[in-house]
């Protein structure tokens, strides 16, 4: 600490025990506000100024007419959306797929990071880390086409294997039951390695002394894992989970779109693909904004709700 220069000791060290006025608090934290300022300005200009765009959900927005020239239609877009005979099917598909992802994909990078953390050969660890993060860079189009190559009934390796082993052919690509597992498998394959990076960074921060002390106490590998490693990344896991809840109605458009076909559409249709077909291809901005607004409201409720639950159970949550 001897490197730290002594600057204005008066301000930061004077701490009257009595309650301070707001003004003195603000003055005490002036440097913090200076640090906060650029970021806050960014959010104001690039996130909050364009926020008027949400209002077009209540319009029949036409780019050429602009915000002030377009007609106001009240809640018509929402009515159309909720009255849509497909609404509940879309909601169900979206939520089930999200649940699959949270249960099966979300833990994958954590487990993998813990396994990697147990590896003591640095070269092996680095090599594995580097290899598993490669698929993140493959486009979804390629992933979908490789999936086809493996799973097609016209000579796909997996398909052939299954029919040899079980004596019957399963058409994974058009099957209603296999659609969701297939999507989750793709995600696990593609994003697990990438997802470990964050946890490995968190693990890098664990104090090695804690392990030494545990070993002295006679703790085995499992005890160390449970008592030291896992708790040290717990808050990161909780935050990621909370933020993930906010995206419960987002399934990622491209992957689903690429894996959808006439025979599995019934389970494959989700809000994101629906918005694509009504909003983007048909150029109906207002309608897709309305759907987006619905998703956002659900997302905010879920984020703050799960954050509340997390804090109730003693976690620090996102705040």
């Amino acid at each position: 600490m001897e490197n730290v220069p002594v600057q204005e000791p008066v301000l930061s060290t004077v701490r009257p025990a009595a309650k301070k006025t707001i003004f003195t608090k603000l003055k005490r934290d002036k440097w913090l506000y200076l640090l906060l300022f650029p970021g806050a300005l960014y959010f104001l200009v690039f996130k909050y100024v364009p926020m008027w765009g949400i209002l077009i959900a209540f319009q029949d927005y036409q780019p050429y007419l602009g915000f002030f020239g377009s007609h106001w239609v009240g809640v018509d877009n929402f009515k159309n959306f909720f009255m849509n005979p497909d609404f509940f099917r879309l909601l169900k598909n979206t939520l089930i797929l999200s649940a699959y992802n949270i249960f099966f994909f979300f833990p994958a990078p954590i487990i993998l990071a813990l396994l990697l953390n147990e590896v003591r050969k640095a070269v092996f660890k680095k090599t594995v880390q580097t290899l598993i993060y490669v698929p993140h860079f493959m486009s979804m189009v390629i992933v979908a086409s490789i999936t086809y190559v493996f799973f097609t009934t016209e000579g796909g390796i997996v398909s052939e294997l299954v029919s040899h082993l079980f004596g019957r052919q399963i058409d994974f690509l058009t099957s209603l039951t296999w659609f969701r597992p297939l999507i989750v498998m793709q995600t696990i394959w593609k994003e697990t390695g990438w997802g470990t990076i964050l946890f490995l960074a968190a693990l890098a921060g664990v104090d090695a002394q804690l392990y030494e002390a545990a070993i002295v106490d006679g703790a085995g590998r499992w005890r160390q894992l449970w008592n030291i490693t896992l708790p040290s990344i717990r808050s990161t896991i909780v935050i990621l989970l909370i933020l993930r809840m906010g995206a419960s109605l987002d399934n990622g458009f491209e992957q689903i779109f690429l894996m959808t076909n006439a025979l599995n559409r019934q389970v494959a249709d989700v809000f994101d693909t629906y918005v694509y077909s009504v909003g983007i291809t048909q150029g109906s901005f207002s309608y897709s904004t309305a759907v987006g607004l619905f998703k956002a409201i659900v997302g905010v409720v879920l984020i703050f709700g799960s954050n509340f639950l997390a804090r109730k159970s003693g976690e620090s949550g996102i705040f």
Binding site: A262, L263, R265, V278, T281, Q282, S284, Y287
Partner: peptide, 20 residues
């Protein structure tokens, strides 16, 4: 203009389901 994609999907899906 609003529902074209869904209408087309219903039609194409039915055709393919019928064929297979």
């Amino acid at each position: 203009a609003q529902k074209g994609t869904q209408l087309d999907n219903i039609l194409n899906d039915a055709r393919i389901k019928y064929i297979v």
